[in-house]
């Protein structure tokens, strides 16, 4: 278990360290804070998709466990891997539909939780903002 956690820490930390390097680069290129964060996510997603397509992400994940699961690259892997796997069942009913088997619940619960918090914020705002 200690070894699992060390792997998760090192690989997960490494992915975040790469993310920070990308973010710093985009900020230096003159992007706003929000845009730099979004560009960082998009870049990591693209890298993860490429690694998934080549079969590398799964091999790394067999060692890294949560280190490759928890970063946004893991979310991208959860979308891209079923798309590749189930294209045999068609690009509509296979690849596209199955993209959401793992990622769907993340979006559903994330979106609903943020909407709830938004509504709560709407009610709290008159008191908090003052």
């Amino acid at each position: 278990m200690g070894r699992d956690c060390a792997w998760a820490f090192a690989v997960g930390g490494g992915i975040c360290r790469l993310g920070e390097a990308l973010r710093t680069g985009y900020l230096a290129a003159g992007h706003t804070l929000t845009d730099a964060a979004a560009l960082t996510s998009v870049t990591l997603v693209a890298l993860s998709a490429a690694a998934t397509a080549l079969g590398w992400y799964q091999k790394l994940a067999a060692r890294a466990g949560a280190g490759t699961l928890v970063p946004i690259t893991g979310f991208a892997n959860a979308v891209v891997s079923p798309a590749i796997e189930f294209k045999a069942e068609g690009l509509v009913t296979g690849a596209a539909a199955r993209m959401f088997t793992i990622a769907g619940p993340v979006l559903v619960y994330g979106a609903v939780a943020s909407a709830l918090w938004g509504a709560v914020w709407y009610l709290l705002r008159p008191w908090v903002a003052a």
Binding site: G13, I15, R17, E20, P71, G118, Y122
Partner: peptide, 24 residues
């Protein structure tokens, strides 16, 4: 921590929550 906090999926949740607050 910058990307150390935004790249893990907790950061995705933070992004969603911030987005909701800003839009409200």
């Amino acid at each position: 921590a910058g990307a150390g906090a935004t790249v893990p999926l907790l950061g995705f949740g933070h992004l969603l929550a911030q987005g909701a607050v800003d839009a409200v």
